[in-house]
Design a protein around this nucleic acid. Structure first.
Lengths: 333, 333
DNA sequence: CTGTTAGCGCATTCAC
DNA sequence: GTGAATGCGCTAACAG
């Protein structure tokens, strides 16, 4: 039968030192004589000692955890953000504790309170849409907060992302410059995905500036997917066949639109332009690379972690990190 | 200035009861008079009390956490498993603590020890490829373990997944039955993805049974992706143009292969068959639905959690849950 | 149905 | 460079 896991006390006894010395060795904090350190290390290895984090967290009123709130795991964008978070966290000793909000601010609020129960060092969440209670909990807490993806509002502490509105605007202007005039839009459910709406608004603003507008618009009532894009473009074209370019809420939708065109024998880029958002690999692997805007999802996650861990205090001044975006001219629009 | 967060003691004082009573109300454990419960609840709300999990974990020698070790977040399959895990966890009060191993058993081992430091209730990991130290840590611990995706070996406690080998075998047999004879294989790096190799072995076994073999084989030296599939099929066809069907290591690769065919004007399904694995949405959204095998990633995650939380002890007998798979006939092979 | 007592394992003082 | 005392906030075990 296995005895209960070894504790600091066990290590201390074996090494012939006090518990606090072991603790210092483990945390690499304070000055320790090289000989002592070696002896302690040896004892640690011999016993297979693993520090009990719960005890550490309790004693020091703070856990080496980062709470991460994501709206969804279905949309490939968020696993990529998470990948950036993981990568940046890997070397630090912090671990991510994850919650999925389904784009629901109330769920976000509930999850936040379970995360805060661990006394994490920081919270990473998405966007600026929070309940009042959420804002209060965050404001009243000691943890630093990063809000990801968008930078078009005032952050609680730190925002990392891109201006969704400007990205949409630049997409519109780019297409106007390329000579398109009869614009269609294929989107998905905005209630969930607020950022898609911001891009749409920017896009419309660019058209308006050129004295143009959207002549056909179709929104799929659900989250974005390739299939949704395919179906929704079909509907749009059946109602308004004479658009010369269609802007999609994102690349998933746009790739679906591309598939529709393949099946319907529409020559993409010549008869009909297609434009996405995100710059996913899949879009660039198409026989004709998708025209779109590259967002830097991985970097957003990575930078958020870096900024959060730069200091152990909440920042004095709000910080906004613009990770930018680039238009990928592609060949579909 | 905000005072420090309210504790059980604060709530107890306000409600005029003892701490343990509050604790019982919070955990909904033991019997409490309705009147007392109401009074305590009121105090909790009034103070905005949030239990300190670290303290709870320390006192009860166990945290309401599930450690999750995933090989990758790049491969869409794992976010889907994670989604299943999250969904099943949502109602339970358990939270997932996540580590990404990059298919590296040594990283897995390190991450496992950081996860165990929290005294989680259970560990979810992937496959059967672990270091000896990993096996020892798990065997010697109190936590239940689920190994996901594959069921072709003896699990530590619970395995949830499908027989990768049989899936590969059935794919091979299916294609032989459909009359294909000149088989090509396009894969990615096996050192990382052991399951792709198992499928390949099953596939070859089916061919061998029919007196057939793989006449052309190309493996991309890296992880699977659409672009890798596209490039690698191109290479294979340039070396051996007369294959009549190509089996891919998974759908990502197969979709890439499909894109190559589009660009190269190869009529998929007539001139050349393509077969994938996983049954991703993207494959079914293609103009011609991809022939493939549907695995049930979401369910694998969900069921793993359900089985793990069924009991609070390690199971007496090893449990294997076969989530099965189905051949999607599709139209590409 | 409710309370008392006694730690859980560690880190933060402050000494020496 | 090292140690002793104390408590973090909660829950298990036992009373009553």
């Amino acid at each position: 039968m296995r005895r209960s896991a070894p504790t600091l006390t066990d290590v201390a006894k074996l090494a012939g030192v006090s518990e606090i010395t072991v603790s210092r060795v483990v945390r690499n904090k304070g000055s320790i004589a090289e000989a002592t350190r070696a002896r302690v290390q040896e004892a640690i290895v011999k016993l297979g000692y693993v520090p009990n984090r719960a005890a550490g967290a309790l004693a020091s009123a703070g856990a080496p955890l980062i709470g991460v709130l994501l709206p969804s795991l279905s949309n490939i964008v968020f696993p990529e953000v998470l990948r950036g978070i993981h990568t940046a966290l890997a070397a630090t000793g912090y671990q991510p504790l994850i919650g999925v909000t389904d784009y629901d601010p109330v769920k976000e609020q509930d999850l936040l309170s379970s995360l805060l129960a661990w006394q994490p060092a920081a919270i990473i969440t998405t966007g600026f849409e929070h309940t009042d209670a959420t804002r209060q909990m965050l404001a009243g807490s000691r943890v630093r907060v990063a809000e990801l993806m968008d930078i078009d509002a005032e952050p609680i502490d730190i925002a990392v992302g891109l201006s969704q509105r400007r990205a949409g605007f630049d997409a519109g202007r780019h297409l106007v410059e390329r000579g398109y005039r009869r614009f269609g839009y294929v989107g998905h459910d905005w209630n969930a995905d607020h950022r898609a709406r911001l891009r749409y608004e920017g896009f419309r603003a660019a058209l308006a500036e050129a004295g143009l507008g959207v002549i056909a618009e179709e929104r799929f009532d659900g989250s974005s997917s390739t299939i949704a894009g395919r179906q929704t473009l079909a509907v749009l074209l059946s109602r308004k066949p004479d658009v010369d370019v269609v802007v999609f809420s994102n690349d998933d939708m746009a790739v679906g639109g591309f598939f529709h065109c393949l099946g319907a024998n529409i020559r993409v880029g010549r008869e009909l332009g297609l434009f996405g958002f995100n710059g996913l690999d899949i879009g660039q692997a198409l026989p004709v690379p998708l025209s779109t805007i590259r967002s830097h999802r991985f970097d957003i996650g990575r930078i958020a972690v870096e900024k959060l861990l730069e200091s152990s205090e909440r920042p004095e001044e709000k910080l906004i990190v613009d990770t930018g975006y680039e238009i990928i001219a592609g060949a579909t629009a």
